[in-house]
Amino acid sequence: MTTLETGQTAYITRPNARFMLSHPAHLLAQGFGSGLSPVVPGTMGTLFAWLVFATLSVRWPGFFTQANWAIIIAAGFVVGIWACHKTGRDMGIADHGSMVWDEVIAFWIVLLVLMPASFSTQFWAFLWFRFFDMVKPAPINYFDRRFKGGFGVMFDDLVAAFYTLLLFALWRTL
């Protein structure tokens, strides 16, 4: 958000790298640049999450254990509330599409629960998570409307992650 010479407020509708790098909250909320994609930023943020999770888990398996991932995810959720709130306020749009940290944290939860899993299972998890995040079936749509600010941005994606994991749990029982 910037102030024009006329004293009016201009909202940032198309963020760029300069905006993202202007504050650590923006960098995090916009998924280290993955949310700046001009097309399907949420999908790009989820792909970023998948790549980071897989890379770190393979490269440093002694550190990126399930317990440590759980701590990272919990801390990432709390910090994400702040980062998304600050970024949304600075942009003038509470849940701008470029803010993808919510997808990152939620998809890490999906991967944490499903791993170890084949590439095919991870791919299907990616597709189902994106479906639930985009379509927002009840009660996701309720939470999306009800909760505002950073918490609202982060919370509805947790429900999409829950739906994804519920689908896999049901599939495995059949």
Rank of each mutant, 00 (worst) to 15 (best):
L36E: 08
V39W: 15
V39T: 15
V40S: 13
P41F: 11
L47T: 03
A49G: 01
W50S: 08
L56M: 15
L56E: 09
V58A: 06
G62W: 09
T65S: 15
T65Y: 13
Q66S: 10
A67P: 02
W69V: 05
A70E: 01
A74R: 10
A75E: 01
G76Q: 13
G76P: 09
F77L: 12
V79C: 14
W82A: 12
A83P: 00
A83D: 05
H85S: 05
G88R: 08
R89G: 05
M91S: 02
M91W: 07
I93W: 03
I93G: 03
H96G: 04
H96K: 03
G97V: 03
D102Q: 00
F107N: 10
I109T: 10
V113D: 02
L114Y: 00
M115P: 01
P116K: 07
P116C: 07
F119I: 06
F123D: 04
W124I: 05
W128C: 11
F129Y: 08
F129M: 04
R130A: 13
F132Q: 01
D133N: 07
M134H: 12
V135P: 06
P137L: 10
A138Y: 15
P139S: 04
P139Y: 07
F143T: 09
F143R: 07
D144R: 00
D144Q: 14
D144V: 01
R146A: 11
R146S: 13
F147A: 15
K148C: 06
G149I: 03
G152S: 13
M154I: 05
M154A: 04
D156K: 08
D156C: 05
D157V: 01
V159I: 15
V159W: 10
V159G: 03
A160K: 01
A161R: 03
F162D: 08
Y163I: 03
